[in-house]
């Protein structure tokens, strides 16, 4: 095969002489057009794609259940439901949470996802532990890592109690000492 520059019909092509001033003008005009396209189409498309994902969701309270349903010292699995109906996407009409009643009106509401790679953890009441089914992650009743690869304790939800009903809000990560570290999706 020929290894020199050639056009579609085979004749060789050499770049025509263009005056430097004219070349600069062409570069500026073309650059300007490309910038304009990037500005009015590219930037909005990027925002369209990424911003809904990055926006911090506003706090939506989930109704977890009446306080009487949570005996002191026990952990219960609950299907929590959003208080307000949401327009499309109607995602996660219900959310599973684990609720620990720590007594004296204090609760811990756990996120079900293992902090390793997100498999759903199971509460085992006899053993008093949460087990992840994927890579042997084990958490104690406060969500501390007992064994396996999880890098941090179970995530939690903020909560409030109103008129004898427990509500869960946004999820957050905790430190090794189970103190607030950051919102889950900051």
């Amino acid at each position: 095969m020929e290894r020199k520059a050639s056009g579609p019909l085979g004749e060789s092509v050499s770049p025509p002489a263009v005056a430097p001033g004219r070349r600069r003008l062409l570069t500026v005009v073309l650059g300007g057009i490309l910038t304009a396209i990037a500005g009015v189409v590219g930037a909005p498309l990027a925002a369209f794609f990424a911003l809904p994902a990055l926006r911090l969701s506003e706090r939506r309270w989930l109704e977890v259940g009446r306080l009487a349903e949570f005996p002191e010292g026990e952990i219960k699995k609950v299907l929590a439901r959003p208080l307000t109906a949401q327009a499309w996407p109607y995602e996660t009409p219900r959310v599973t949470v684990y609720v620990l009643n720590r007594g004296a009106g204090k609760f811990t509401v756990f996120n079900i996802h293992c902090t390793h790679v997100g498999c759903p953890v199971r509460w085992n009441p006899q053993a008093g532990r949460f087990f992840s089914p994927c890579h042997g992650g084990v958490f104690d009743r406060d969500g501390r890592v007992l064994a396996g690869p999880p890098p941090r304790p179970l995530d939690r939800y903020e909560y409030k109690v109103e008129k004898g009903v427990l509500y869960a809000g946004r999820a957050y990560k905790v430190t090794e000492r189970l103190e607030f570290r950051e919102w889950h999706h900051a």
Partner: peptide
């Protein structure tokens, strides 16, 4: 990681988006 996660999912959870 956190941004990548949310951009992939289109939000905080795996859902409609």
């Amino acid at each position: 990681g956190d941004y990548l996660w949310r951009i992939l999912q289109g939000g905080a959870t795996v859902g409609a988006r």
